[in-house]
Amino acid sequence: MEALVPVITTDRLVLRGHTLADAAEQAQLWGDEEVTRFIGGDPSSPEESWSRLLRYAGHWHMLGFGYWAVEERASGRYIGCAGFADYQRALTKDVTGMAEMGWTFMPAFHGKGYALEAVQAAQAWAAEHLKRPVFCMINPENQPSIRLALRAGFTADGEDQYHGRPVNLYCYQAA
């Protein structure tokens, strides 16, 4: 499956396809309360993290885009994930045909510029390969993620509700 996913190398990062070897780190990432407090509010169980890992692979296989595992080049350590999905979100805004961009990083790597570096690398790939508009939705209390989206060129596109919780929507034109 990894061969379907392009490898992107930046100064400090490698974005690559997820593998089964990432399952433990994926569970650690999504099981962390600090990581999930603005993403649904509850840490994911190992079972939920496993399903997410399989969804990442499935996106690449079925749609030709998806999430990359992000590792630090210097250490080879899995530090998070970033990429695109089509989750068929039930939002008031019609997002049909759009790709949803997201990013999630281990708390030890917050505030170091890794997320912006990964997002910009993914956006560069998208400009060439992803021929659809991109949006992201962010909890309005998640100020670091909002700042990241704005720095990465997203523009505010209103408010919505997802599973009864408020979200801010942002758009980015990849093509």
Rank of each mutant, 00 (worst) to 15 (best):
S45R: 03
R37F: 05
A74K: 14
G40R: 07
G66M: 08
S75E: 12
P46C: 09
P43V: 05
E72F: 01
E25W: 10
G83P: 10
G76Q: 10
L53H: 00
I79H: 07
G66I: 06
W68P: 11
R77V: 15
E72P: 01
A90M: 14
E33D: 12
Y78K: 03
R55W: 14
R73C: 02
R55C: 06
G83Y: 10
W60L: 04
W68Q: 03
A69D: 07
G58L: 05
A27W: 04
V35I: 11
C81W: 00
C81E: 15
A90H: 15
D11C: 01
R12I: 05
D11L: 03
R37A: 06
D11T: 11
Y87F: 14
R12P: 04
H59G: 10
H61R: 11
T19N: 00
A85M: 12
T10F: 04
W50C: 05
P43Y: 03
E47F: 11
D11V: 02
S45E: 08
W30N: 14
P46A: 10
E47K: 09
V35N: 11
A90Y: 03
T9A: 08
L15N: 02
S45P: 04
E72Q: 13
W68D: 08
D86F: 01
A23P: 09
A23V: 12
R77E: 14
E71W: 02
F84P: 12
F38N: 05
E33A: 15
G31V: 09
F38I: 07
R37K: 15
G40S: 09
F38G: 02
A27V: 10
Q88A: 15
